[in-house]
């Protein structure tokens, strides 16, 4: 069983001094600068061993923030999920990639980049994945305007 968020927070702050961490529901909100170090710790700490990144996605909260959300489980100890969130500036959403920690982030981060426009630094191959190269805009953002399919040609 996973420890409660409160005790986990204490452990994390003791192990990684100076990190910004807030309890949100069943999981944590992590600050952008600590994103990879917290993830790496959660994966390797012997009591947790959250070795399986199940799901990584984003939620758009206009006008000012985008949250990257991920759900972690442990395949060795069979516990989870632990939800991690990181709040990003919607105008320039940039966060470090966790592909080096969990390989399963590779395509999921590409999808978030493709549909939300979040840039993951140090990602090995950050390209669009579902939309085509050269597509403009980020379709999953709340302010994305869907093209009107009934109009054959755009008025000049």
């Amino acid at each position: 069983m996973l420890p409660s968020p409160e005790s986990l927070k204490e452990t994390l702050q003791a192990q990684l001094p100076g990190i910004g961490l807030s309890i949100e529901g069943e999981g944590f909100g992590v600050e952008v600068k600590d994103w990879v170090s917290v993830c790496r710790y959660l994966k390797t700490a012997p009591a947790l061993e959250l070795d399986y990144l199940s799901d990584l996605t984003a939620v758009d909260y206009p006008p000012d923030r985008i949250e990257v959300v991920c759900h972690l489980y442990s395949m060795k100890q069979k516990h989870g999920p632990l939800t991690l969130r990181v709040k990003l500036n919607r105008a320039h959403p940039v966060v470090d990639s966790v592909t080096a920690v969990w390989r399963s982030a590779e395509f999921q981060e590409r999808e978030v980049y493709d549909l939300f426009g979040v840039t993951f630094t140090h990602h090995p191959d950050l390209r669009r994945i579902l939309m085509w190269d050269g597509f403009e805009g980020y379709p999953m953002r709340k302010d994305y305007v869907v093209e009107d399919q009934d109009v054959l040609e755009k008025p000049a």
Binding site: S54, R103, F107, Q108
Partner: peptide, 26 residues
């Protein structure tokens, strides 16, 4: 996996599908 975020309205605020074959292709 299905990740749902509700804002209290009849539609989901966020709806995400964690598709197994998508991740297995990595």
């Amino acid at each position: 996996g299905f990740y749902l975020v509700s804002d209290g309205s009849p539609q989901p605020y966020r709806y995400h599908v964690r598709a197994p074959s998508f991740v297995n292709l990595t």
